[in-house]
Amino acid sequence: MTPDTTLDTVIDAVSAVFMVVGAAMSLGAAIGLLRFPDLMSRMHAATKPQVLGLFLLLAAVGLQLRTWWVWPVLLLAWIFQLLTVPVSAHMVGRAGYRTKHLHRELLSTDELEAVVQKAAAKDTAASDAEDDDDSA
């Protein structure tokens, strides 16, 4: 075997491993969606394993194409994924928390609840004061 074909074999093997593990991450996301009990924990499964999954698949594509100019595009695709995933997760998570789409009995602690209730109490107190002003 010439050194060139050995290198090819190594690259093929590495990208094969990357692709299988990357696809397994998608499988993990699907299993998580089915198995986790509430919206918030499903968000973890749906968004997060993809960060690694996409990274591995893009790396496999880059290794297989063997031209340097695809690397900047692949890097760009991954960075945009890194920038957008937390935002979408935050938006859905925040909306889910506010509309009470979560199972409280599954939380060991909730340090946000007290803050929300305090803010709500302040709001009602303020609007009560306004009502008093109106009647006076």
Partner: peptide, 16 residues
């Protein structure tokens, strides 16, 4: 997370 999805599933305990 993969492991938790497979092994723990519906019985997972979270926190805020």
């Amino acid at each position: 997370v993969f492991y938790l999805a497979v092994a723990r599933g519906p019985k997972v305990t979270n926190a805020v």
